[in-house]
Design a protein around this nucleic acid. Structure first.
Length: 249
DNA sequence: AATGATTTCAACCGCAAACAA
DNA sequence: ATTGTTTGCGGTTGAAATCAT
């Protein structure tokens, strides 16, 4: 397994991209398409490594990038997806049309991470005070157990058709949740165990849906965000992007 | 207005998976 | 099956912007 060529070769430009470099890269990809990143710098006349070109394109130059502030809906969705997936930024970004993994990662690290930390410490403080009276918290858990897939779930009916492997996997996945003493909805399982990278869109949305049901059955997550309903505009956007199933009205 | 502290975010780095020969 | 190459990901860095004094 070779090490990536890296961007440390001498003679290559580093740091912020200039408007001219952006234009060269855009022009090149417009006519030749994405891919073959290693060749792009040479062929586009850029003194950058392929990796840097790829990053610049994916995070900044792509025409479908949505720039501007993260909306409240997106904010809420990121929090929920992060609960479900952890730091799988690319997976999370894949459910937010026009947003990049880098952007979401930055947003999490600068805004949401702190916000949740603050809320957690608030909770843990109040829990400390209550602790003598309350029972030990029941853990919130996701269990993996044999369970038949429900016939036709209206909320998931628009998901792309599952492959047989998908279906097989879904047959073995059931998500249950329990409210813990703090009212937090924390997950006691490692999503990695489910090999999320292998999970198709259809599976993903079923997981999301089951996750949602778990929250509804088990109470809120302590943030009060579970009652949040998304705007019609956002819903339409997600429908257009195949992300409808995460809409909750 | 000056300056130091803090925050933001684009870009880089290293690793590992995926792919090709 | 093995080895080398390419691509994609998540963590981290540091320059620029913003805020506080």
């Amino acid at each position: 397994m070779g090490k990536s060529p890296g961007c440390s070769k001498e003679g290559l430009d580093r740091g912020a991209w200039t408007a001219l470099e952006d234009q060269k890269l855009k022009d090149y990809i417009k006519t030749h398409g994405e891919g073959k990143w290693r060749n792009i710098p040479k062929e586009a006349g850029l003194k950058r490594c392929g990796k840097s070109c790829r990053l610049r394109w994916l995070n900044y130059l792509r025409p479908d990038i949505k720039r501007g502030n993260i909306t409240l809906d997106e904010d809420d969705l990121i929090i929920r997806l992060h609960k479900l997936l952890g730091n799988r930024w690319s997976l999370i970004a894949g459910r937010l049309p026009g947003r990049t993994d880098n952007e979401i990662k930055n947003y999490w690290n600068t805004t949401l991470g702190k916000k949740l930390k603050a809320e957690q410490s608030k909770h843990s403080n109040s829990n400390l005070k209550k602790k003598t009276k309350t029972n030990p918290p029941k853990s919130t858990m996701v269990s993996v157990a044999p369970q038949p897939v429900e016939a036709e779930n209206p909320d998931t009916s628009e998901a792309p058709p599952a492959t047989s492997a998908d279906k097989n996997m879904l047959n073995n996945v059931a998500i249950t949740s329990q409210e813990d003493g703090s009212g937090n909805f924390a997950m006691d399982f490692d999503v990695g165990d489910l090999l999320m990278s292998d999970i198709s869109d259809s599976e993903f949305w079923k997981l999301c849906h089951q996750f949602d049901n778990g929250i509804e059955e088990g109470g809120n997550n302590g943030t009060g965000s579970e009652n949040l309903s998304y705007s019609e505009e956002t819903r339409k956007e997600w429908v257009a992007d195949g992300c409808y199933h995460y809409h909750r009205s």
